[in-house]
């Protein structure tokens, strides 16, 4: 069941962004930024957490999940240490993704040559 939900949810987000991309003047950069803000907004009242419970991995892959994990880590840390936790805990969950994205891009850039 999680597999079907993943397919539907991830596909729906991609389809909606494709429709926005084709029918408006927004670029992929605009759309990903908007989706990140939407993801952060949805987690303000723990809506995105429930989506992840129902959908599983499909909700963790779209870029909305990046905004969700930023605010999720911030709030989890804020529960422990107070207001400063919002600043300290923001990268708790996304750190692995960002660090590996930077490291992989750096290593592959050193190894490979640009194609075009």
């Amino acid at each position: 069941m999680l597999l079907i939900n993943s397919f539907l949810f991830c596909g729906l987000i991609c389809m909606l962004s494709q429709l926005i991309l084709d029918n408006t003047k927004l670029t992929p950069g605009h759309i990903t930024s908007i989706l990140v803000v939407i993801g952060a907004f949805l987690d303000t009242f723990s809506i995105y957490d429930r989506i992840i419970e129902v959908v599983g991995g499909g909700a963790l892959l779209p870029i909305t999940s990046f905004g969700h994990s930023l605010i999720h880590g911030a709030l989890a840390q804020a529960e422990k240490t107070g207001v400063l936790g919002i600043l300290m805990g923001m990268f708790d969950l996304t750190a692995a993704g960002i660090v590996f994205a930077i490291i992989f891009s750096f290593i592959f850039t050193l190894i490979f040559k640009p194609r075009n």
Binding site: S6, F7, C10, G11
Partner: peptide
Amino acid sequence: GGVIGMLG
């Protein structure tokens, strides 16, 4: 997109 989500 659905296939990517399902792979995840």
